[in-house]
Amino acid sequence: MENLINGGDAVLVGEYTTVEAFPLVCGPYGIPYLINIRGAGHRVQGEMYKVNGSGLGQLDDLEGIEIGHYERLPVNVVGDCGENVASEAYFAHRSFGEGMWKMCGQVGLEEFTMELSKKYERKEDRPPNRDYLQDIRNFISNGH
């Protein structure tokens, strides 16, 4: 996001919370996943950004939309002032989202905290030549 902001493609709007509850879990490499199961989990807190078309394309590439890592879906969020805003969020792809939720014991997080982010492994620090979707399937079936 820092690169998008510095390039003029995104602006931080503020802290928002989902109107509905959704599961938020951490998967392989400490990566957070919002799961599209409405009413499960918690109302999830996070940052909202206003992103232009160029920035959105870059985010879609980063989040692996075309290769089935995430899906960008509509979600309603509410800010500190109580305003309800129609937005979009990146959810775990439907092919594995529910399985990841079950693997995590159907216990979700309210937000991806700075403490949790310390467990996140940047892409360049992960083992090379890995099939990330296979890593997710292994995580779901083996718990790691």
Rank of each mutant, 00 (worst) to 15 (best):
L34Y: 06
E83T: 07
P23K: 07
H42P: 05
G14K: 11
R122S: 15
G105N: 13
N3R: 10
W101Q: 09
Y90P: 10
F139K: 08
H69C: 11
R38C: 04
N76V: 02
V44Q: 15
A10D: 12
P127V: 03
P74H: 04
G82R: 07
C81P: 01
V75W: 02
K123D: 07
T17A: 09
H93E: 15
C104Y: 12
I5P: 02
S95E: 13
D135E: 14
K50I: 01
I140L: 11
D125I: 00
E115Q: 14
A40R: 10
M48I: 14
A86N: 08
I31R: 13
G30N: 08
Q58Y: 09
M1I: 05
A21E: 00
Y16M: 05
D60G: 06
F22V: 03
P128T: 03
H93T: 03
E15L: 12
R126W: 01
E110A: 07
L73T: 00
D135W: 07
G68E: 01
S141A: 14
F112D: 08
G14Q: 10
G68V: 08
Y33S: 14
G27Y: 12
V51F: 01
E111A: 09
G14D: 02
E66T: 06
E110F: 08
A89Y: 01
Y29D: 06
Y29H: 10
L116H: 09
W101P: 08
S87E: 10
A40W: 04
L34F: 04
P32M: 08
C81K: 13
R130N: 06
E98N: 09
K119R: 13
V44Y: 15
A10M: 13
E20H: 14
S54M: 05
D60R: 09
P32N: 11
C81A: 11
S117H: 02
N84K: 15
S117G: 00
Y33P: 09
V51R: 12
G46C: 11
P74T: 00
G30E: 05
E110C: 09
S54I: 05
N138A: 14
S87R: 13
F91E: 06
R126G: 00
F22D: 02
I136G: 12
G8M: 08
Y70R: 06
Y16G: 02
F112K: 02
I5G: 13
G7W: 10
G79C: 08
F96K: 10
I5T: 11
D80V: 06
A21Y: 00
M100Y: 05
E63L: 06
Y29G: 02
A21L: 00
I67N: 15
S141I: 03
L133G: 05
G55W: 01
D60A: 09
